[in-house]
Structures are given as structure tokens and as C-alpha cells.
């Protein structure tokens, strides 16, 4: 199963204050541990929302609203994410608990969310072929001039 560990934004990340050397090292260690266990699929940090754009999709007829950042520092704002492969949800939580916390961000939050697997229904190639045949046959039927 794949999980996304979502790191929430906070005042420091939004202000673009660089992390301490110690935290950076801790994070590098963390990624290395994940990678060595064959669990790491992706890990990214986002720039502060001041460089972002928020698009509000208003619906079918109205055109979308485009608002430049920064955005209010609310619960929706994220600062980074790590995608891992884990056997169980418990294992994913274990990994999330090991994530280092930067100094001054003791109240920060990480969400653990399972990614949806390709939800695509299994295709049955035989049925696909039958549908193609049906099309062909209907065309032949349409072309036929006269009937008994």
C-alpha cells in the first residue's frame, strides 16, 4: 500500500526561514533510512505559499478565480510530503512518527493518508473484442441492401 505523509505548513515554513543544520541532517538521515528499507517513493518540500497561486474552480459557467499567494495560514496549507510504500497502515504510522521535527515547530502536524490504488476496473479483453466485433457487424447490417 502507498501512503502519503503530509506535513502541514507553519509560520516558519511560510516565512521561508531555513531549517537548522541539525534538522536538515536529520531529514537526510530519515530519507536515507526510508530509501534503504525500500520504502521511499517520493519526498518533496514546497516553497512558501507566497510563490503559489490558488485557483478557485467556481463551477461550470463562471470562469475560475485565480488568487496569488500568500494564503492564510490555515489547516489547509501544506509544506511538504513524503510518499512511502508500507505493508500496513501501522507501519506507515511508525514511519511518520520517526519523522524529525524542526526546532521551533513543536506544534506541527503530519497526516498519514493511504493513496488510492489505480481504481481502474479490470478490463476484460475478450469483452472489449466482442464490442469491437459488434460494431463491425452492425455496420455490415446497415450496409445490407434488402431483406427477405
Amino acid at each position: 500500500m502507498r501512503f502519503m505523509l503530509i506535513v502541514r505548513a507553519n509560520g516558519l515554513s511560510e516565512a521561508g526561514i531555513l531549517h537548522t543544520h541539525r534538522f536538515e541532517e536529520g531529514m537526510a538521515e530519515y530519507r536515507k533510512a526510508l530509501a534503504q528499507a525500500g520504502k521511499l517513493l517520493a519526498a518533496e518540500e514546497l516553497q512558501p505559499s507566497s510563490s503559489g497561486v490558488r485557483i478557485r474552480l467556481t463551477g461550470r459557467d463562471a470562469s475560475p478565480e485565480v488568487c496569488p499567494g500568500p494564503f492564510p495560514l490555515d489547516h489547509r496549507l501544506i509544506a511538504g510530503y513524503v510518499v512511502i510504500e508500507a505493508e500496513t497502515a501501522d507501519e506507515a504510522v511508525e514511519w511518520a512518527l520517526k519523522m524529525p521535527v524542526p526546532a521551533g515547530c513543536e506544534g506541527s502536524e503530519v497526516d498519514v493518508r493511504e493513496l488510492r490504488e489505480w481504481a481502474q476496473e479490470d478490463r476484460n479483453p475478450r469483452v472489449l473484442a466482442l464490442e469491437a466485433d459488434l460494431q463491425e457487424q452492425v455496420r455490415m447490417l446497415n450496409q445490407m441492401q434488402k431483406f427477405l
Binding site: 475478450r126 466482442l130 459488434l134 457487424q137 452492425v138 455490415m140 447490417l141 445490407m144 427477405l148
Partner: peptide, 21 residues
């Protein structure tokens, strides 16, 4: 051996071709 509506529809068209719509 593998009943399905798509097979029935194909059969209906084949029957139309052979014996009339």
C-alpha cells in the same frame, strides 16, 4: 460457455444477417 449481454447482441446481429432483422 460465457453468457453476457454483448454476446447476445452480437448473436442478434448475426441472426439478422442470416435470417433477416
Amino acid at each position: 460457455v460465457a453468457p453476457s449481454p454483448i454476446v447476445e447482441l452480437n448473436r442478434a446481429v448475426a441472426i439478422s444477417m442470416a435470417f433477416g432483422p
